[in-house]
């Protein structure tokens, strides 16, 4: 594995409120290597988007990085402000959001949005940028790219818009893409097109991808490794096949059991009792223990230790041992 493009070390995001300090991201560490897709899964409120926003410096105050380090391509970025942060965004890190309509400027032709981004970050002439804009649109599979550069965002369908957003994220040739629920607003057939496109482009260019989603199916098909988040903490991290077929953390196991599967037929779905705790009422010890079938006194007393296991790791006192299904 080549050197990590993104390294997050013990990242903690805090939001001070009247009722105390909330920690939507709490002591999270992971790396993403060049050309690798790291899937980040979790339910709403697990802190997966918050971690992505922290990397690209989009935390809205009063949320702030309280602890930890973020390194992108060998540079520490968590303390950058103002102009330095602006240069990093777009140049080193591209971002794809869930809703393609709100991430494009409705008043600018898409060609202008692409050239503006390139002129801001790359040292090229306007004519060159315009040429590259057409090439970028062709690359993401927009038919008649030479004519469509003059179109406005509302003239495209949802899937085509998301392609434009991907072209926009990739046009300054960043080393890292953060894709936050890129296909959640799209239909299944369009989702398959967008995921295939994202995978292809990133593999060709060796771009690292942080793919944030709640859809385990998308993770299984697109990611190389997966990080499972629960209540702001990393519950489990490992190669996608290992984590999904032989989970070590009881939460991952419960999540997999809750997903309707063809092979399970009409049997009752496995239920995780209760709901994810609110950030202002996190239980003592392991955050998952009130819902965990394996919980014991130790889990109530202190959070699960980080257990390294080859390529993966899990934060649990009593990780489940199960043979991987070949």
């Amino acid at each position: 594995m080549s050197a990590a493009v993104l390294s997050i070390r013990d990242l903690t995001v805090e939001i001070p409120t009247r009722h105390g300090i909330l920690r939507p991201v709490n002591g999270v560490s992971y790396d993403i290597a060049a050309g690798e897709v790291l899937g980040v899964v979790g339910e709403s409120g697990a802190g997966k988007s918050m971690a992505g926003n922290a990397v690209i410096g989009l935390l809205s105050p009063p949320a702030h990085i309280a602890k930890g380090e973020i390194w992108v391509g060998g540079t520490r970025v968590d303390q950058l402000v103002g102009e330095d942060m602006r240069r990093l965004r777009g140049k080193e890190i591209g971002m794809v959001f869930q809703d393609p309509l709100t991430s494009l400027n409705p008043l600018l032709r898409i060609g202008d949005q692409l050239t503006e981004t390139m002129l801001a970050h790359l040292d090229i002439s306007r004519a060159e940028a315009e040429k590259r804009a057409v090439a970028a649109l062709e690359e993401v599979g927009i038919p008649g790219a030479a004519e469509r550069v003059g179109s406005f965002p509302h003239e495209f369908s949802g899937g085509m818009r998301q392609r434009v957003v991907i072209a926009l994220a990739l046009c300054a040739e960043p080393s890292l893409i953060i894709a936050d629920e890129p296909t959640t607003a799209l239909d299944v057939s369009v989702q398959a097109q967008i995921i295939a496109l994202l995978k292809k482009l990133c593999r060709e260019r060796g771009t690292a991808v942080m793919l944030i989603t709640h859809d385990m199916g998308v993770i299984a098909e697109a990611a190389d490794r997966v990080a499972v988040m629960y209540a702001g903490q990393l519950a489990e991290l490992g190669p996608v096949r290992d984590v999904l077929t032989a989970p070590h953390h009881p939460y991952t196991d419960g999540l997999m059991g809750s997903t309707p599967l063809a092979s399970r037929g009409k049997d009752r779905l496995h239920q995780i009792p209760g709901a994810m705790p609110r950030l202002d009422a996190l239980p003592e010890g392991c955050a998952f223990h009130p819902r965990c079938p394996c919980a014991q006194d130790r889990c109530r007393a202190s959070p699960g230790p980080r257990i390294e296991d080859g390529a993966g790791r899990v934060a649990c006192w009593f990780p489940m041992v199960r043979e991987a299904v070949a």
Partner: peptide, 24 residues
């Protein structure tokens, strides 16, 4: 057939299939 092929599934690790063409 297209809809079933396009739906992401657990167990299809790193699946590489030609995605469906066209839109509604």
């Amino acid at each position: 057939q297209m809809l079933l092929a396009a739906a992401p599934q657990l167990g299809n690790f790193g699946r590489e299939v030609p995605p469906p063409t066209g839109e509604i």
